[in-house]
Design a protein around this nucleic acid. Structure first.
Length: 436
RNA sequence: GGAGAGGUGUCCGAGUGGUUGAAGGAGCACGCCUGGAAAGCGUGUAUACCGCAAGGUAUCGAGAGUUCGAAUCUCUCCCUCUCCGCCA
């Protein structure tokens, strides 16, 4: 029976919301280019579930009552065999109905887990990324008196990036960092973690990068996006595509104390993505790799604060770019471009001179209670209050490889050397420049 | 990998087939007591689902089974701990 409870809790959207406001849920799904027919499918199965459940519970109530009577009779040495025979039938019927109940339960869950989150009302409506809205820009784009080179060319020439070796030992979409390159990557990780832990109040964690299917379901990667994930062959593990998965699930099936909120974590981890369906896209350089490093920020907050916290989270991520001196802009994703689990997302895009365009380097999202419902993360606003679903947020702070690439491109000199941003120099033994 | 032990409510901990949602204790909350506090005494202290409600149902690691009835019996799995082996 426990599984029933768990599965009910496993819905992404509140099943009561779907039941009571099917039209607004449909609208929400439509506006983000989702499949609104899922609502009617869910409702049909849910109705069946409720019908069976009511009957099951009535019979169970009867069984419980008669069982007590049988116990009483036996105690008084009375013959109970007639009732026992009757109850055999009742039990058989319960079994039958329970199977049916489980069936509709599973079906309802399957549908519900496929439903994406509903967008927040402030999110601009749109079909796709072309309808995203620029919120602000920051920093001055560098101007060059020469043709700026792409980061992969710079990295190769400096001897700090080696794609051939990576292809040899692994395959396409991998890279090997050498010497100061490896050190720069490490410096960036340390710089970001120090900034977020010392100045922004995040608690540092380091988690497993291999997680189970339950965790992947909790944050929304499963069941729908299995093809994007790497999995281990002989054990039931998935490699995390982002530390969001392991960090958010840190508090799965927990009830947090309201006074301790917000809980904020910063986590460095390697991330693994199959990039299925992105063949031919960003094949050059380190922009799109199967494995990359990222410092992730994750927050658990009270629902009424989550949108303020999203603004703060985005600014925390932005401050990394500000300190590094990289030009960027913040973009608000339209309903059509929103990630599966997100209610609202800001992308931070850093300037890439060789491409003459901004590219995503961070994605900051408010998931509201979507992940909390799937993962069972709740809080009590005070010790006596009823538990409520918490709101979860996360954002890259930042994608390290892309930051590495942006530094090479933005701070390159005509001779192919690269100036190291001041804030990173202490992390590199005072080194001021990358030179061949 | 081998051998063994164990998984019960916020925590500790009883419970081996019948009013056990679950003894007892701790903690916490409220009340009494007190000049105030401690002690002491009393009361309360899970979650989810269905239902307008009354109420009902479920939950003692997970799943399956035996039974009229399972926290208690059987099987499978997961996890934790101890010892041995191996090892960064």
């Amino acid at each position: 029976m426990k599984i029933l409870r768990k599965e009910r809790g496993g819905h992404m959207l509140d099943s009561k919301l779907i039941r009571n406001n099917p039209e607004s849920v449909k609208k929400g799904l439509k506006v983000r280019q989702g499949d609104s027919s899922l609502v009617d499918k869910f409702l049909a199965v849910d109705e069946e579930w409720r019908k069976v459940t009511i009957e099951v519970e009535e019979l169970q109530a009867k069984r419980n009552k008669v069982s007590d009577e049988i116990a009483e009779m036996k105690k008084n040495k009375q013959d109970a065999s007639r009732i026992i025979t009757q109850m055999k039938e009742v039990s058989a019927r319960i079994k039958e109905l329970t199977d049916k109940q489980k069936e509709s339960e599973t079906a309802a869950q399957k549908i519900a887990l496929e439903m994406p989150n509903l967008p927040h009302l402030s999110v601009p409506e749109g079909m796709d990324s072309r309808d995203n809205r620029e919120v602000r820009t920051h920093g001055k784009k560098p101007s060059f008196k020469f043709q700026p080179k792409a980061h992969d060319e710079l990295g190769r020439n400096l001897g700090i990036l080696n794609f051939e070796q990576a292809a040899k030992i692994s395959g396409a979409r991998f890279v090997v960092y050498h010497g100061l390159g490896a050190q720069l990557e490490r410096a960036l990780i340390n710089f970001m973690l120090d900034l977020h832990t010392k100045e922004h109040g995040y608690q540092e964690v380091m988690t497993p990068v291999l997680v189970n299917a339950k965790s992947m379901t909790g944050t929304g990667q499963l069941p729908k996006f299995e093809e994007d994930l790497f999995a281990t062959r002989d054990d039931n593990f998935y490699l995390i595509p982002t530390a969001e998965v392991s960090v958010t699930n840190l508090h799965a099936d927990e009830i947090l104390e309201g006074e301790k909120l917000p809980v904020k974590y910063a986590c460095y981890s390697p991330c693994f993505r199959r990039e299925a369906g992105s063949y031919g896209k960003d094949v050059k350089g380190i922009i799109r790799q199967h494995q990359f490093n990222k410092v992730e920020l994750v927050k658990f907050v009270q629902p009424d604060k989550s949108y303020d916290e999203l603004e703060k989270l985005t600014k925390d991520a932005e401050s990394v770019l500000q300190k590094l001196g990289l030009a960027y802009r913040v973009v608000e994703l339209s309903t059509g471009d929103l990630g599966f689990s997100s209610a609202k997302t800001y992308d931070i895009e850093v300037w890439f001179p060789s491409e003459n365009q901004y590219r995503e380097i961070s994605s900051c999202s408010n998931f509201e209670s979507f992940q909390a419902r799937r993962a069972g993360i709740r809080f009590r606003s005070n010790p006596k209050a009823k538990p409520e679903f918490i709101h979860t947020l996360n954002g890259s702070g930042l994608a390290v490889g892309r930051t590495f690439a942006a530094i090479l491109e933005n701070f390159q000199l005509e001779d192919g050397s690269v100036e190291i941003p001041k804030v990173l120099q202490p992390y590199l033994g005072g080194q001021k420049k990358l030179e061949a």
